[in-house]
Amino acid sequence: MDAIIIQILNGLDKGAAYALIALGLTLVFGTLGVVNFAHGALFMLGAFCAVTFNKIITWPIQPPKAEGQLFAPPAKPWFEYAFGDLGASIINWSVPISILLAIPVMLLIGLAMERGLIRHFYKRAHADQILVTFGLAIVLQEIVKKFFGANPLPQNAPAMFNGTADIASWFGLTDMFIVYPWWRLIYFLFSLLVIGAVFAFLQFTTYGMVVRAGMRDRETVGLLGINIERRFTVVFGIASVVAGLAGVMYTPILPPDYHLGMDFLVLSFVVVVVGGMGSLPGAVLAGFLLGILQSFASMNEVKGILPGIDQIIIYLVAVTILLTMPRGLMGRKGVMED
């Protein structure tokens, strides 16, 4: 039982990352009709916002080498020198604080990407869109590799979130052993917050209402004198920010490297397809569903019966769902069917 509960938590946590990436991906597809293979790269760029912020505030001040010493002694971050305890606290909290850097940076990157490149491909075939965005993703990751190298760069969660939460004791289950890392729980809650904010924005604001209307019928909204393209550009920026935030907060879980986006991209596309192309609730539902299924399939008991199932479960479920529900779990009629 303990193992099952832990795997559910695992699945929710994994699903949170899938859902956040898939949400932006399907948002872009639903509004602009663009299949954006560079979306994983946005997740990676978000993670590197956290890395960059950390590098800036921990820029080393190098004590001089002693005579006869071949390599210099350990350096100290300049923020600690300049601001003492406050500087040390900011370094400790650098990952959550870097959200403040990631929001404007990712918004700008998103807007530049959409205005500079992707808008020229609106009316082109999906295959062209896939090729150009995939190429863009490779260019972005090679740029990151050039500046940060190929090795993973570990980022620490704030010290108070190190270690694990004794979840069994919260519910008085003293005979069970259910622990889970604090930061992963924080990530799950953070993802719910971001997903909730995106839904609230689309559901409860006039801006969001217009965007939703545009997703349904772009031409009619245009005939009403609304510049729907500009709004969709903003939506692309928002999708970039969502992917970026997902990346920032994921850095203490998985030390980021330049390839991080590609690792998530394929799975996120499966999530979008299973959820239904262009369906926001579908992406979130499929994200969590596939995350949980993947976790269960990795249990030794399951693999004992079906060896290798952990590596194919997601694709197996995708095939099954697409055979029985061709539009995905919550796909709308007419999307991607022309």
Partner: peptide
């Protein structure tokens, strides 16, 4: 106790690590 094979480049190992706990 067990020898568990993990795919190369798995990224997230949480589903392989949690069974170790119990």
């Amino acid at each position: 106790v067990a020898t568990v094979r993990t795919p190369v480049g798995a990224g997230d190992y949480s589903q392989y690590i949690t069974p170790v706990l119990n």
